[in-house]
């Protein structure tokens, strides 16, 4: 990573951590000046950009985040059994507009099942889910058509909402660009790399501008840059008032979310994130 990449990553980290835009610009400009005049490797001078951003946040604080809005998703007492095996027991989660909730837990603890129940794709044995507004869902894998182009996927999803072809294509390409992907090519989905295919998957789920967005480990196959873009986009959607639920096993991202539901057995009730940062109470 050269100095420019380091500065870009720092800017993204500051944005993610909700440092006020003016202050973030000032910090990045100062770091750039320091590197230009003093020289040296930014990793040696400042350390990793994430760590430096953390120090900045501790020093100058963050901009107050928007107040969470009304409840958009309320899953209550969700229980699901497969045969004699209870996968979910009395799981409860409430997500408001402008919040990101993480669903975490060990493999096989029912994270994807919980999300599919929230999306209405499978029925629970007990419990109910209330959703306010339009629902978007991005599965862990699949969910795309092998022989269609990205644009055709956008047209297909757009038609469901009554969106004309041109606007659907433009909206899809714009959303893909947020993930660092130029989607307008003549490549069928089956020829896309695993990561790019997931970008298509993710783009399709945001295309209908959902009020509640359910993401089942959508970043599989993403490289580091895309991963940063992904969390940037989640931040933008949150700021726009979307309620987001993301299944994740990457605990290092928990400081970017507002609520955590840990489905690991014996900790099955929803709890607040242990280290909530960035102005979200």
């Amino acid at each position: 990573m050269n100095a420019d990449d380091w500065l870009r990553t720092l800017a993204a980290e500051l944005h993610q951590r909700r440092v006020a835009a003016d202050a973030a610009r000032h910090v990045v400009a100062e770091a750039a000046t320091h590197l230009r005049e003093g020289g040296g490797d930014p990793w040696v001078v400042f350390g990793p950009p994430q760590q430096y951003a953390g120090a900045i946040v501790e020093s100058i604080g963050t901009a107050p985040g928007p107040r969470p809005g009304p409840v958009r998703l309320h899953a209550r007492g969700i229980t699901k059994r497969y045969g004699r095996r209870t996968v979910l027991h009395d799981a409860t989660l409430t997500v408001r507009a402008g919040q990101i909730a993480a669903v975490i837990g060990a493999n096989g603890c029912g994270k994807s099942t919980f999300l599919r129940i929230c999306a209405g794709l499978i029925s629970p044995d007990a419990g109910d889910v209330t959703v306010s507004g339009q629902l978007g869902y991005c599965p862990q894998s699949g969910g795309t058509a092998d022989f269609l182009l990205a644009d055709e996927h956008f047209v297909l999803v757009g038609a469901g909402q009554g969106v004309a072809r041109g606007p659907a294509r433009r909206a899809g390409r714009a959303a893909a660009r947020q993930l660092g992907w130029e989607a307008g090519g003549d490549v069928q989905a089956r020829h896309l790399s695993g990561g790019t295919r997931q970008k298509l998957n993710l783009t399709m789920s945001t295309l209908s501008q959902p009020d509640v967005l359910l993401l089942d480990e959508p970043y599989q196959g993403f490289d580091q840059g895309t991963y940063v873009n992904f969390w940037d986009q989640l931040g933008r959607l949150r700021d726009a008032g979307t309620a987001i639920v993301v299944v994740t096993h990457l605990l290092n991202q928990l400081d970017r979310v507002d609520t955590v539901l840990d489905l690991t057995p014996a900790q099955q009730t929803g709890r607040r994130a242990p280290a909530v940062q960035g102005g979200h109470p």
């Binding site: 209405g120 978007g136 699949g142 999803v157 295309l207 209908s208």
Partner: peptide, 15 residues
């Protein structure tokens, strides 16, 4: 068979 995974999300998308 190929559409089996795609259809539920199209249903959510308004179909």
């Amino acid at each position: 068979t190929a559409a089996r995974e795609l259809e539920p999300r199209l249903r959510l998308a308004g179909y």
